[in-house]
Simulated assay, not measured.
Amino acid sequence: MTDYQTIAFERSGAVARITLNRPDAANGMNAAMTRELADAAARCDDPATKVVVLTGSGRFFCAGGDLKEFASAPSRGRHLKGVADDLHRAISTFARMDAVVITAVNGAAAGAGFSLAVTGDLVLAAESASFTMAYTRVGLSPDGSATYHLPRLIGVARTKQLMLTNRTLTAAQALDWGLVAEVLPAEDLSARADELATAMVGTAAGSNGGVKALLLDSFSRGLEEQMELEGRLIAHRAETADGREGVDAFLAKRAPEFA
């Protein structure tokens, strides 16, 4: 699948850029978008891609699920399960790939848009961005990994507050709570994402993937098991070409040239 209808996909060297591209529908997630997002994520899961930048077109990052499409489906439950499965496949792929995922939240992120926004390894937000769960407002429950990521990012109490009261956080509040890494003027967001992507291209993809893998399941492991995995992975990294290059470059006081 190369011709997408609901997202824009482009590559520049080791950087892939995915743009949610239904601006007239607030970038709402319909079946086509989540299917295409899963396909694009799979295309980025390869050694040639070191960075993925994910953003939205227009004024919104993503307003959540497309309720109009959901309501018109012959079986709403079956339809939503399919949409959620594709979204979850995309998020799982982003989480487990070596590439660093930068989410550039350019506007309102609601429902599944909020869920997706905070899955980034590095989350940037425009000053105009806002974040709200909004699921219970329409009688639904969260998806898009929100019940996994939010408790780990901000704790259970604050997660419940967001999910049960549908409180809207400004970008500044999201930064204070630890949901985003940086907040910038809207006109600077894209340039900052590109700057960060360029910096990440110069790093070792395997090392970045190792960081992601170690952190992803760290809450489910005990101390000794986690340290054993750390020991095994750092030993493996030391034997790789990038590991050797990084150490040799440091000792020679020169910049490393990673693959």
Rank of each mutant, 00 (worst) to 15 (best):
L150V: 02
L37G: 00
V138P: 05
M97N: 01
D143N: 14
A235F: 04
A73C: 08
G231C: 12
K160F: 14
L233C: 06
V156G: 05
R167P: 00
V53I: 15
E224R: 08
T55G: 12
L189S: 03
D188H: 07
A32H: 01
L150T: 00
L214K: 04
P142A: 07
A42F: 09
A110N: 13
A112D: 08
A199E: 07
D86T: 06
S72T: 14
Q161N: 12
L122P: 02
G28I: 02
P185L: 12
D121A: 11
R35P: 02
D3R: 11
P151E: 06
M200K: 01
D217G: 13
S115L: 03
R254C: 05
E230I: 15
F258S: 14
L251T: 10
R232K: 15
A193F: 03
D188R: 11
E228Y: 12
T240S: 09
R11G: 11
R167C: 08
G246F: 03
L229P: 04
V247R: 13
K81T: 15
R137V: 09
N30K: 01
V51R: 00
P142Y: 01
V201C: 07
P142W: 00
M163F: 05
S12W: 11
A174Y: 00
D242V: 08
G231L: 12
A174C: 00
I154L: 01
A129T: 03
T203L: 01
Y4N: 02
A191Q: 15
E245S: 00
G246M: 02
A126Q: 09
T119Q: 15
E257V: 10
L20R: 06
A191V: 14
A129H: 00
G13T: 09
A205E: 04
P23L: 07
T136A: 11
S130K: 04
K160V: 15
W177R: 11
Y135D: 03
T2P: 10
A235D: 12
H236P: 01
E10P: 08
T165H: 13
I91H: 01
V183M: 02
A255H: 04
I91F: 07
L162I: 12
D86W: 02
P23V: 02
A134V: 14
E127W: 01
A213T: 09
A172E: 13
W177E: 15
I234H: 07
A104T: 14
G113S: 07
A110F: 13
H88F: 12
M29V: 02
G155R: 14
L251G: 07
A84N: 13
T2N: 15
D85F: 04
G155Y: 12
K81S: 15
R17E: 08
H88Y: 13
G13W: 06
G111F: 00
R137H: 10
N21K: 03
M200E: 04
I154Y: 02
E36G: 08
M133G: 07
A186Y: 05
H236F: 11
